[in-house]
């Protein structure tokens, strides 16, 4: 398998050695076992669909009394993040209540304004996807990345017809060095999946281009897509991107490492 294998989970190391983790998909279990640091863990969750929190309960630091975990994510309009996550950590979905886990866990509803974590600047905004869902932008020393793994940037409107401020997630992705963005569907599949909250390859490329993102990393592959099928989407994305520079779109893969400097 060249692509996929786990649901969304991205490790980010900051210049000062801090650890941020974007989403708590199934990859979080393996990451927890490989962690080589005792520093506080900041988990930035985009939303609470199961594929983004499934790894949380099996994250090793959760079960160590000395570990400090900070979980950041979206409140709903009426419930805090903690209240919402507690549901996934309680019977009948799980035998143990979150209050009984040994780690020092703090929940944070994401602030509306940008904030600093581990020496980098974080910005979170709600983006178009069913249920309260965030995208994140991380900036440091003149470099930046955006992470918008679940996103249907327009519904019933052409992206090209909208002013930037009306495009969901645009401010997060504007001028970033790397954009990790939803690219679940082919253009042929999308019409029967409108409103599911995910992008076609054409959406992903058009969104990245409108935001002037320098590089697109295609993310959130359809679980039923083969490696060869992902290759076909990458070829299509590169064709839509319009030039054959080194910064042409690529597909995210297990273990991929990107260095921003």
């Amino acid at each position: 398998m060249r692509f996929g294998g786990n649901t969304p989970c991205v490790e980010v190391r900051t210049p000062n050695g801090g650890l941020l983790i974007l989403d708590a998909g199934t990859g979080l279990r393996q990451l927890g076992e490989q962690l080589d640091t005792d520093c506080p863990v900041h988990l930035l969750v985009t939303h609470l669909h199961l594929d983004h929190v499934e790894g949380l309960r099996f994250f090793a630091p959760f079960w160590h009394p000395e570990r400090e975990l900070h979980i950041w994510g979206p409140p709903s309009p009426v419930h805090t993040l903690e209240e919402r996550i507690t549901r996934a950590f309680s019977p009948p979905l799980f035998p143990i209540e979150i209050s009984d886990t040994p780690a020092k866990v703090t929940f944070h509803d994401v602030p509306r304004e940008p904030w600093e974590l581990e020496g980098v600047r974080i910005e979170a905004q709600t983006v178009s996807h069913p249920g309260p869902t965030l995208g994140y932008r991380i900036s440091s020393n003149g470099t930046s990345m955006a992470y918008i793994p679940d996103h249907e940037p327009v519904l019933g409107i052409e992206l090209a017809d909208l002013e930037p401020e009306w495009i969901s997630g645009h401010a997060l992705a504007e001028d970033v060095d790397v954009l990790l963005h939803d690219c679940q569907f082919s253009e042929g599949e999308y019409p029967s999946r409108v409103g599911w909250g995910h992008s076609s390859v054409a959406h992903a490329v058009a969104f990245a281009r409108r935001a002037d993102a320098r590089r697109l990393v295609m993310f959130h592959h359809d679980p039923n897509r083969s490696d060869d099928g992902v290759d076909v989407l990458v070829e299509r994305a590169q064709e839509l991107w319009g030039d054959s520079s080194e910064d042409a779109p690529v597909a995210a893969s297990e273990g991929m490492t990107l260095e921003l400097s």
Partner: peptide
């Protein structure tokens, strides 16, 4: 980007998308 109107809240974006379909 300097001088550009700030990003609209998602609730407004979705309201506009709804309006265009009504």
């Amino acid at each position: 980007m300097e001088g550009r109107p700030p990003q609209k809240h998602l609730a407004l974006i979705i309201a506009r998308e709804l309006a265009t379909q009504l």
